[in-house]
Design a protein around this nucleic acid. Structure first.
Lengths: 253, 253
DNA sequence: TACAATTGTGTACCAATTACACCATGTGTT
DNA sequence: AACACATGGTGTAATTGGTACACAATTGTA
């Protein structure tokens, strides 16, 4: 162990040695009636697109930072937000570093610094969102999952990891409270799952399994208007939903 | 979007505004013959114990930082290491801040800064480890899971989150390659699972399920020496093991 | 040689998942 | 009004997976 004198010196030096930039990158998945999109931004100066993100302020819990950043990009609060991975390769910002190297003196080149990025993903109904560009972009818009642009930095890795994580978590977590209207039909909920997983599910088995989780209330009313038999309406049982979020939907060993 | 002038000013300011300290805290679970322990450290000046940890250097990938820190504390490389959560509450270091407040001038009080900590957990055979104190501790030793000391800061939360995550991941990930000898018997492997989960498993069902994963090779030889029927020896099929690590052991929807 | 402890293997049972059949309901066509 | 058609609601058989337990085999020891 160090002496008190050495300790003080260590702390004084460490204050500079170990400082890093911490950013949040957020994969915002938008859903509406069987469509699934990602929110992306782009500057006119560059070809590549990037994910909504920002920096964590010194006295700010990271959850708050993620909420704040998302509110700025989408206009909405209380989004379903899930932290999923930290991306910390020092080469992450190499591209930017190269780009600004000639424009800016070294001590002002922010991207010569090291970045660590905390990855979050968010689920929203994209009809509730007003995409708003940030200080480094002119364009902020929804991109279809089947028509993705070129990504900046390691944002493609972040996006793919988010999608994989989301699909995995579908097995253990309830989903949809922020994505469905207050009252919805079973086929509508099934469509959400099919969209995320990108595959067809059997409607009868889906229904039974979903009801088995005990997070839905069956309502009296039915959804009229379609050219077919009117399906029953459901709403989420919020208590059970919250409980399932915490404890998961399946047990293990 | 900002003008070039504004951008330069932003970067110059941001360089100071958003710098944070990033540390790694690592829950090292040690196993041997049915025992499970955690590696912990303690300074003579304080009562509370803390987890192995350290700071991420500017030009260092975080995975490397975790490896480096663990090598310093345990003497071993190539440990099974899993990132599981980021702890970023600004109040995390409050206790230390209070403690050093009177000892150190504010600008030298490292703990007045914000800390963000990336949580990892590691699995090792504790007979392979030489616990080595760091610069802030005199004691570095294994603590039994049933006899845990008082924790510093939010290290109890980190520890509990790690244990929960480990138990959850047992359902989806193979485990044991770094913890078992090259050749081992089924009861020995079962003991590892029982130790982690802290419950008894049925040996016949365990065997069938384990073999079903296809990550084990049954060997000709048996383990002689016990006062009972000699069990068969197994080894891990490394190819299948690695594949299962990536793809998981179960499928979902 | 009998016994205790432990391992190897099989099987009956229950729960969950999958696949599919059949009926009900609302709309448009004739 | 009769009918086809698309879709939703419900039931059920077949399959799979997990749990509980029975019984035979092996090894060292009394």
């Amino acid at each position: 162990m160090l002496t008190k004198q050495e300790l003080e010196e260590f702390w004084a030096g460490a204050g500079k040695m170990y400082l890093n930039h911490i950013s949040i990158d957020c994969v915002v998945f938008g859903f509406h009636e069987g469509q699934m999109k990602v929110l992306m931004l782009k500057s006119n100066n560059e070809e590549a697109w990037y994910l909504p993100g920002g920096f964590v302020q010194k006295q700010e819990p990271i959850e708050n930072a993620a909420d704040r950043i998302l509110k700025e990009r989408t206009g909405i609060d209380e989004i379903f937000l899930q932290q999923f991975h930290v991306f910390g390769d020092p080469d992450r910002s190499k591209v930017h570093n190269e780009m600004y190297k000639d424009m800016l003196p070294a001590e002002k080149n922010f991207f010569a610094q090291r970045f660590i990025s905390i990855g979050y993903y968010a689920l929203v109904d994209f009809f509730n969102v007003i995409p708003t560009p940030d200080d480094f972009s002119e364009v902020c818009t929804w991109r279809d999952l089947n028509d993705l642009p070129k990504f900046q930095l390691d944002h493609e890795l972040i996006f793919k990891t988010a999608l994989d994580t989301l699909r995995l978590q579908l097995n253990y977590q309830p989903i949809g409270y922020n994505l469905m209207p207050k009252e919805f039909t079973m086929p509508e909920l099934q469509k959400l799952y099919e969209t995320i997983l990108d595959k067809k599910l059997d409607r009868r088995n889906f229904q039974r399994r979903m009801l088995g989780f005990g997070i839905l209330n069956k309502l009296e009313a039915t959804r009229k208007g379609g050219a077919h038999k009117a399906p029953y309406l459901y709403s989420f049982d919020l208590d059970n939903y919250q409980a399932a979020l915490k404890e998961g939907l399946k047990s293990g060993w």
